[in-house]
Structure formats: structure tokens, C-alpha cells
Design a protein around this nucleic acid. Structure first.
Length: 965
RNA sequence: GCGGGAGUAACCAAGCGGCCAAAGGUGGUAGACUCAAGAUCUACUCGCGCAGGCGUUCGGGGGUUCGAAUCCCUUCUCCCGCACCA
């Protein structure tokens, strides 16, 4: 048996147990008859050392893994390293160039020794260095990871696996070729990334629908975010003061002549259209043109408007006066104006507004109503903006298309855009046109444009069937916390095709188009299965043996062992083992991750699983946790501040760091790592250590001799409550709540138990307590565990986790304890208020009739028939009670609402209550006397031998009357 | 703009229709132990109260209810994501 050191030395304890775990290989699971639990955390991206954010996410994973393991599951918790993509390449360049900020941050904050940092000038060296460091760090903090399965995403074997995956997706038609819009600097002739941007970092690319209105072989395109309003277009707006460009536009073999603003012409040259300038067209030449609405066939005309800005959209605007306040105002401004200079003779008043949306709280013409309600004067009135927003918002949320939209009638405005745009595209009436939400300027000073990159490979996430399967997957999954389920569904809905290959960076070549590299989010979607296979691959299987047929057989069950052996040269037995391992471990039981990965990695993880695997291999649950900041400041890998995992463990120790990070915030909430907070966690752990040592040193033994005292039963009961709550919290990954129960509340209860003279159960309580805490602070728990006499090799990490045992719940013991506590605090309060120093205290327990009344009331409520009148009558019918005739109704009047409003749980406890208050109080006289410091006497209110102030009549059940002398 | 989330006592934070003036932890105050400090333990920590009580609180306003921190409406403030980047 090990003897605990006097003082808690985190580092020596932790080192010892880490070595012990590693030597005994207890975290290297193999399939067996137990139920399995496969938990994975996204592998870290290695452009720096692991930091506090990783610490939180990985520790959650480890705590869950340890909890499940102790519950009897066969748990697999593996880890790998992600290096695909450009940042590591970029970092190598920065180090090569001795970039001052980078060198500073990486030496000071990532704590890389200078002589090593200087050598990290290639991506390979960076990957090598950080992967070694990351593994060391994860071992230092005591994660129960099976390290036999680790890999890096640039391993040749991994690349074979990724190539297989992408060939498969390609064959399934889920990878398609297309063009996609990027922020582009025409001067640098390059895409701009966020850090290249001078202004407009917030800008997003918005997809407008371009509606092509035709006149005499010429197209006047209008860009709109609301293509459905095309049904309500009465005219187009052209700014007569602005020069326009007539251009030849061709795409996909179709050639058209367009007229747009010069700015729009320039933008068009960056799209996937071929554009050629023909001539300049003054704006006024475009006014007064007659055209037809391409959808409704209505006659329309172009009208002059000064509000039209040539830099927005195409420079030509469609007018929907029934629904757009600006259009209505501009139209009204023209009423009665002489437009003959544009060759317009018609009276503008004859233009009829066309209403096409029915929205809540609006009548026929929402724009008119909004303008009138807000009293907007004209198109230059600032309130016009407000009117526009109001109409837009209300129509978007509650609007439905009217009959005059033909086959679209009845569709909600919020749903119509995609449907209609697709139809307009197909009919050649519309096109898509991208524009920034705000101007974007490159660092070089050049205004940026949206450029279409051609020949790009996409994962076809917009595919409705694919999405349908993902929805189904989410529906049957356990999402933790449940509130984020809706967010997942929203994100699936929002997801469009995703470019999945680039030209730069580390990674795997696209197998069917070798000039492209698979992008990092695509090669990290189903790699959890690779952990299972890699245990075999790393034992001498060469990459050329990893044929498609091997993966087909192992992961999809296609083909046969025999054929796969012929293809790969891998023995049948090995292949069969790989497959049976896969079938044992898969699917992923829980994937837990930081919330930043929701709209990307976690989504793709689901998409790829449903695309590749059979339903029974789809992931079962997903959990998400919040970020970590440092003393209120956001962390940044490249700029700081940053706290590495190593630094935290070096400073505070593994157990303290683990406990602190998990106790400081729950689930999706962000945690703030604060020095003061860790310091207090340190105190808590030390206190735990001391108390455990004290209990062990006192020679406390398991089991109990003789009868349990009330306080023992109380302790057992409380312990069960803690066990129940801790397990409940763990099941939903509420680590903070779990610690609250398993540590703080239990600690207080144990202290109270000791204070009340309890001692018999200390060993057993500690035994349970150590197991409750083991997932959180495993090292110290191993130390205490062996010190308690558990044999060597008998790890607490493998002990049975305490589970709730209802037979130890003792409501009476808890109520009795409550009675004593409440009585004590009542006495203390009276002392405080009256400032009396009592020489003697008399307690009077409730009179019989009140106890009866309470019982009766509880019974009535139980029978759902709680009725004050009836209760009074019943009580009065007992001749014994007659003498209390005046008090009974009073008491009942107070009692009934109390009982009526009781929580179920409390009610049930009360209902089953069998307490003899007199005995309990008498038993605890010593305790009360000790706490207050004067003699205490207990009487029954029915026959108080001594009651000078007539207090006894105030006594009620569970609340004795008190007299201070 | 769209979508998601949050606002609780000095601070972090639980509670999400009724023993809620509101768990737990920090910090603070007082006391015990100690030569002293630390650690530990005990009490108090919204206000008022010479008998266990009362009054005002849970971003602001309004409502539902016998009863609201908890439900509904409205308003303000803050955080996160909006893509080809890990």
C-alpha cells in the first residue's frame, strides 16, 4: 500500500501514473464482448502548439472517455494530426523570412526554443516538430488516448485512403466541376484573403438575380435580391445623367447585346462571361423605351430617376412601386411632370401599381401604406429607408405570393428566391450576378471585384437528396446540447456547393485531376474510420497495398476477402481483422468539438458519412463546446495571447488544469481562463488531497459495524443524490454541473457529516468519491485509490463508476437533518435579531393535531382532493380537536396553499415522511448545545412542562417553536 | 441583413411557473486555531427588523396567472457564424 506524501506534489504524482498507465497499456483497447464506445475529437491543426482551447475540447473528450470506461464500456479514444492546407506552408515561409511578429509569438508564446524555431523553415519540419510536441502535451495532461493509432494527414497511407474517398464521391456524382466567385484584386491578379484587405473585411459576396428585360434585340439587365417582384414591375429606372455601355456578352455559346453602366460592364468582365465593349450610350437615350415584362407580358417603359447609382448592380433598376417605397416615391415624383424631352407622352398617373404579395398587416400596396404611415415626403427623405426595411422585413417573413404569380402562387416569399431563380435561369430570363455587400479594397489600394474562378471542383452539397439524408441523420442523432439541433438544420439548409480543391498547400492530390490538391475540410470528414485501420497499416503495410478494393471491402463490405488479398497482397487474416475491427468500433458514438466547427467540419463530417456509409454506420451523437479566452481576451495562435497546454500543466499540474477548464463554463458557453480561477482550483484539489489523506491516516475502514446512525443514513442518502446528478450531467456533457456535484457539493456534505459527528462511513464515502472524481482528476485519484489499499495494477481508471442506487436514498434521514439545521438557523436568527445571549433554550415540537392535519392534507392532495373546508370538517369531527376550534381554520388556511404549491418531489418526500421529531431533537440536543453554547430542552407542544411565554402553540410540523431565556 | 446565442447579487455562474432573497465557487468582512503568517474551519455578505419576520430585486417596459428570474409580447445591449479558410 502506498503512503500519501504530506503535501500534494502534482508533478511527481502525475508523472508516476502516466508512466504506469502507459506501461500497463490500459488505454489500448481491442474488441471484446463488452459494449464499445468510440469517441473522437477533431484532430488538431498543427500550425502551433496546443493551447487552452484544445485543452478544453480534448479534456471534455477524455473525461467522457474515462467516465464511459468506468461504466464498463470498451472505450476507444484515438488522436491524429491535421496538417492539410496552406497555413503550415505559410508559417514555414514566415519563419524562413524571419518575420518579427511570427518569431516573437512562436518563441515567447508557443515557447519554442530559438535554436529549434530557426530550423522550422519547411512544412515537413513544422509538422514533425509540432506532432511530437502535441503528443507529449497530451500525455502530460493525462489523456487516455490509444496512441498506437495516431497518424498525420500527409502520411502516404492516409493519402491512399483520401484518394479512395474522393474517387468514390466522384463516381457517385457528388463532385462536380464549376465556377465559383471569389474576392479578387485585379491589380495583383489574385484572390484576396481577409488579411489582404484594406477596407471591407466584413464584406460578403451576395448573389443577385439579374433579370434580362429585352427591347429590340437589346438586353437591359436589372440586378435584384427579390426576383419574385418581377411580377410587379411597372417600369425600369435609368439615370439620365449617367453614361452607359453597350456591350457584347457571351456565355455558353449564347451571345447578347447588353446595356449597363460602365461600372457594371467592368464587373461583368470578371465573371464567367466574355464581354466586349461596343459603344457608349448616354443615359437619356435609354429613357422612354417600351418593353415587355418577360414573365407577365405586361407593357412597361423606362423612366428617368436620379436615385439610380451606376455602381450598384447593373446600373439599371426595375421598379416595383406596389412593394418598394423608393420606386413608389420616384414614380409619384414624376406625376404631372413634363417628360416630353424623353419622348414620353403618356401620363405617368396611368401606370397601375401591381401587387403580387400578400403580407400580414398590409393591404394591396404595402409600399404605399408604409410611405403614408411614416409620412415619407419623397425619395430623398431619410425615412424612405425605414419604410423600405419595414416592408421588406414583413413581406419576407409573412408574405405569400398572390394569384397573379401563376404557378408560384401560395409560395412564401422567404422560400421563393431559389426556386424562381432556377426557373429564370432555365428560361433564359435571368442570370446570377455577384456583388459585394460593401466595397472591398485590396491592400494595394485597388478596389476589388468578384471574380469567377473557372474549372473548379466542387462537393455538390447543394444536392437536395444529399441534404435530405443529412437531415435524416441529424434527426436520429443525439445532439448535445439539444438547442443546437436547429442550428445544424439551418446550416444544412444554407450550405451550398463547396470548392474542394486548391492549387497550393499540403495534402492529397485529387485522384481524377492531379493538378489539384484536396482541400483540408474535405480530407477530414470520415477519418475516424482510419484510426481503426491505421493500427494495422502502421505495422508494416505499404501504401501501394492500399487499393480501392481494400477500402471497399473493409469500410463498405463490397467484394470478398479473397479478392482483396489478391489485389493487395495482405494476408486474408489481416484483412478480416481490419474489417471486424471496423465493424466492431464503427459508428462513431460521440464526436465532440468546439462550436467553431459547426458550420464547416461537423457539417461535412455528416455529409460525407451519409454519402459513403450505410445508415448503421452513421454517427450517433454530436456535442459542441464553447471557446476559451485568456483573462477576458480572445486567443490568437498567430498574434497572441495564447496559453499552451504544456504551460498550463507545467505551472499548475494536469489535474488542476483539467478540473479548472471543465469547471469554468458549461457546454456552449465560452470559458475565460483566469489566473485567480486556476489558483482557486488548485486550492480545491489540495483540500481534496488533504481530506483524503486525513481520512486514510485516521485508519478509517471499509464497511460499517453495528447500526447506522441517522447522520450515516443522511450521508449515504446525500451521496446517492450526488452520484445521480453527476451521472446525469456527464451523460449530457455538462462537466461543470458534474464537478459541482461530484466535488463541491459532496465536499460540503462530507464536511457537514464530520461536523455532525459522522465518521463510520468516511472510508466508503471516500472510496466512492475518488471514483466519482477519477475522470476529472485521474492522477490524484489513482494516488488516493492505491493509498486506500487497492492493490497495485488495480487502477481507479478501470474501477466501476458509482451509479445511483435508490435503496440508499433516505428521505426521513434528510428531513430529520433538515429539521435540525432549520431549527439551529432559526435559533441563530432569533439570537441575531433580539441580541439576546440565551441562558437556556426550550424547543416545542408540533402538537398532535397539527401533525395530523398535515398528514391529512398530504393525503388529500395525493388523492387529488385537497379542499380546506373538508379538511377543517374532518379535523373538527374529532372530539379531541374541538378545543383547538379557533386555531384549526387558521392553520388550514396556511397549510393548504403550501401543500397545493409543493413541487412533486418535495411532496412525495413529505407524503412518505415518518418522523418522530421529539426523538430526533432529543438525540441532537448535544449538537445544538454545542453550536449555540447553552442548555437546550425539548418539549411537546401538547404538554409543555415549561412555557413561560406561551410559545408552544406556534410549533408546526418540521418547525418547532422556540423559547429563548 | 440573415441565422444562432446571451443578459441573474462585487465577480464567475446555477435556476427556466410555486420552500427562490435565488445552488456552488471566487472575492470581501468577522471569528476560531496559531507566537505570527499560510492553510483549515465557522458565520455573515440586497435593505430593514429587540422572536424565527417584512420590504425591494433577476437588462428595460407591458401582459398572462392565485402565483414569474422562469411563460407571452415589445424594446435595449452584448457575443458568435455568414464560406472555400483551418
Amino acid at each position: 500500500m502506498l503512503t500519501m506524501e504530506q503535501d500534494y506534489d502534482a508533478h511527481s504524482i502525475e508523472k508516476k501514473w502516466q508512466r504506469s498507465w502507459s506501461e500497463s497499456r490500459i488505454f489500448e483497447p481491442e474488441p471484446d464482448e463488452r459494449e464499445k464506445f468510440f469517441i473522437t475529437i477533431p484532430y488538431p491543426y498543427l500550425n502551433g502548439n496546443l493551447h487552452a482551447g484544445h485543452t478544453r475540447t480534448f479534456t471534455i473528450g477524455d473525461v467522457i472517455a474515462r467516465h464511459k470506461r468506468m461504466l464498463g464500456y470498451n472505450v476507444l479514444y484515438p488522436m491524429g494530426f491535421h496538417v492539410t492546407g496552406t497555413p503550415i506552408v505559410g508559417l514555414a515561409e514566415l519563419i524562413e523570412n524571419n518575420d518579427p511578429q511570427t518569431m516573437d509569438v512562436y518563441s515567447r508564446l508557443h515557447r519554442i526554443p530559438d535554436e529549434i524555431l530557426r530550423t522550422l523553415t519547411t512544412p515537413e519540419r513544422i509538422v514533425e516538430y509540432f506532432s511530437v510536441e502535441a503528443e507529449k502535451a497530451m500525455r502530460y495532461i493525462g489523456y487516455s488516448i490509444d496512441w498506437r493509432r495516431k497518424f498525420t494527414t500527409t502520411d502516404e497511407t492516409y493519402k491512399k485512403f483520401i484518394a479512395w474517398q474522393f474517387d468514390l464521391l466522384h463516381d457517385k456524382g457528388l463532385i462536380v466541376k464549376g465556377a465559383h466567385p471569389v474576392k479578387w484584386c485585379p491589380n495583383d491578379n489574385n484572390p484576396v484573403e481577409d488579411h489582404d484587405i484594406l477596407h471591407g473585411e466584413e464584406a460578403t459576396i451576395v448573389d443577385y438575380t439579374l433579370i434580362k428585360f429585352r427591347h429590340d434585340g437589346i438586353v437591359l439587365p436589372c440586378a435584384t435580391l427579390r426576383p419574385e417582384t418581377i411580377f410587379g414591375v411597372t417600369n425600369l429606372w435609368v439615370n439620365p445623367e449617367v453614361d452607359h455601355a453597350k456591350i457584347r456578352v457571351s456565355r455558353d455559346g449564347v451571345e447578347e447585346i447588353w446595356v449597363v453602366s460602365h461600372q457594371a460592364y467592368r464587373k461583368l468582365t470578371f465573371t464567367d462571361r466574355t464581354v466586349e465593349f461596343i459603344e457608349n450610350v448616354p443615359g437619356r437615350d435609354l429613357v422612354g423605351i417600351k418593353l415587355k415584362n418577360p414573365l407577365s407580358g405586361n407593357d412597361m417603359i423606362t423612366l428617368p430617376a436620379s436615385f439610380v447609382k451606376p455602381g450598384n448592380g447593373s446600373g439599371i433598376v426595375m421598379s416595383v412601386p406596389a412593394h418598394a417605397p423608393y420606386d413608389y416615391l420616384a414614380l409619384k415624383d414624376l406625376y404631372g411632370k413634363d417628360l416630353s424631352e424623353y419622348g414620353i407622352k403618356e401620363d405617368i398617373r396611368n401606370i397601375e401599381l401591381i401587387s403580387l404579395i400578400k403580407a400580414k398587416d398590409f393591404g394591396e400596396n404595402p409600399a404605399v401604406e408604409a410611405v403614408e404611415q411614416l409620412g415619407v415626403k419623397d425619395q430623398n427623405d431619410p425615412k424612405a429607408e425605414e419604410a423600405t426595411k419595414t416592408v421588406y422585413r414583413r413581406e419576407f417573413h409573412s408574405g405569400v405570393l398572390k394569384e397573379n404569380t401563376g404557378k408560384y402562387a401560395g409560395i412564401a416569399v422567404s422560400k421563393i428566391k431559389d426556386i424562381l431563380t432556377r426557373d429564370l435561369l432555365n428560361e433564359g430570363i435571368g442570370e446570377v450576378f455577384y456583388e459585394f455587400s460593401e466595397p472591398v479594397v485590396c491592400r494595394c489600394g485597388t478596389p476589388c471585384v468578384v471574380n469567377m474562378v473557372k474549372g473548379q471542383w466542387f462537393l455538390n452539397y447543394s444536392n437536395p437528396q444529399w441534404k435530405e439524408n443529412v437531415y435524416r441523420c441529424i434527426e436520429r442523432m443525439n445532439i448535445i446540447p439539444e438547442e443546437i439541433r436547429v442550428e445544424f438544420n439551418n446550416k444544412v439548409d444554407w450550405l451550398k456547393d463547396k470548392a474542394c480543391a486548391r492549387k497550393k498547400g499540403l495534402g492529397t492530390r485529387l485522384p481524377f485531376d492531379k493538378e489539384w490538391l484536396i482541400e483540408s475540410l474535405g480530407d477530414s470528414t470520415i477519418y475516424m474510420s482510419y484510426y481503426i485501420m491505421n493500427k494495422f497499416f502502421s505495422q508494416g503495410i505499404r501504401e501501394e497495398q492500399l487499393t480501392h478494393s481494400l477500402f471497399d471491402y473493409v469500410l463498405l463490405g463490397k467484394g470478398s476477402v479473397q479478392q482483396t488479398t489478391i489485389d493487395t497482397g495482405i494476408p486474408e487474416k489481416t484483412i478480416a481483422n481490419i474489417k471486424s475491427d471496423f465493424d466492431y468500433w464503427y459508428p462513431v458514438d460521440l464526436r465532440s468539438s468546439g462550436k467553431d466547427l459547426v458550420p464547416n467540419h461537423l457539417l461535412f463530417f455528416l455529409f460525407h458519412h451519409v454519402a459513403i456509409f450505410d445508415e448503421e454506420k452513421w454517427p450517433l451523437s454530436l456535442a459542441v463546446n464553447g471557446f476559451v479566452s485568456l483573462e477576458g481576451e480572445k486567443m490568437s495562435k498567430s498574434k497572441g495571447p495564447i496559453l499552451t497546454l504544456r504551460e498550463a500543466v507545467d505551472t499548475y499540474g494536469a489535474d488542476i488544469s483539467r478540473m479548472y477548464i471543465l469547471s469554468s463554463a458549461e457546454q456552449t458557453q465560452d470559458a475565460d481562463w483566469r489566473n485567480a480561477g486556476v489558483e482557486s482550483a488548485k486550492k480545491q484539489v489540495e483540500r481534496f488531497y488533504k481530506l483524503a489523506k486525513e481520512i486514510i491516516d485516521s485508519g478509517s475502514q471499509p464497511g460499517i459495524e453495528g447500526e447506522l446512525k441517522l447522520i450515516d443514513r443522511w450521508m449515504l442518502s446525500r451521496l446517492q443524490q450526488c452520484i445521480r446528478e453527476t451521472n446525469n450531467d456527464m451523460t449530457s456533457l455538462r462537466t461543470r454541473g458534474a464537478l459541482q456535484n461530484a466535488f463541491f457539493l459532496l465536499y460540503n456534505d462530507v464536511k457537514w457529516y464530520q461536523r455532525r459527528g459522522g465518521s463510520a462511513l468516511l472510508y466508503d464515502v471516500l472510496d466512492t468519491w475518488v471514483r466519482l472524481m477519477a475522470p476529472f482528476t485521474p492522477h490524484i485519484c489513482e494516488e488516493i485509490w492505491t493509498s486506500m489499499g487497492h492493490k497495485e495494477g488495480n487502477f481507479v481508471s478501470q474501477a466501476a463508476y458509482p451509479i445511483f442506487c435508490p435503496r440508499f436514498i433516505d428521505n426521513d434521514a434528510e428531513l430529520a437533518e433538515e429539521l435540525v439545521c432549520n431549527t439551529l438557523s432559526d435559533i441563530e436568527e432569533i439570537i441575531k435579531v433580539t441580541k439576546i445571549t440565551p441562558k437556556m433554550i426550550a424547543l416545542y415540537t408540533s402538537s398532535q393535531w397539527r401533525s395530523k392535519a398535515l398528514k391529512m392534507a398530504l393525503k388529500m392532495k395525493n388523492e387529488d382532493d385537497l379542499n380546506p373546508g373538508k379538511l377543517i370538517k374532518t379535523l373538527m369531527s374529532d372530539p379531541e380537536n374541538r378545543k383547538y376550534g379557533k386555531e384549526i381554520p387558521k392553520y388550514v388556511q396556511k397549510l393548504v396553499p403550501d401543500i397545493a404549491s409543493m413541487k412533486t418531489e418535495r411532496f412525495e418526500t413529505m407524503l412518505g415522511m415518518k418522523l418522530d421529531e421529539m426523538t430526533i431533537l432529543k438525540e441532537n440536543i448535544a449538537c445544538l448545545e454545542n453550536e449555540i453554547g447553552c442548555p437546550v430542552q425539548v418539549y411537546s407542544a401538547d404538554e409543555p412542562d415549561y412555557d413561560p411565554q406561551n410559545k408552544a402553540r406556534l410549533a408546526t410540523p418540521l418547525r418547532p417553536a422556540i423559547y429563548l431565556e
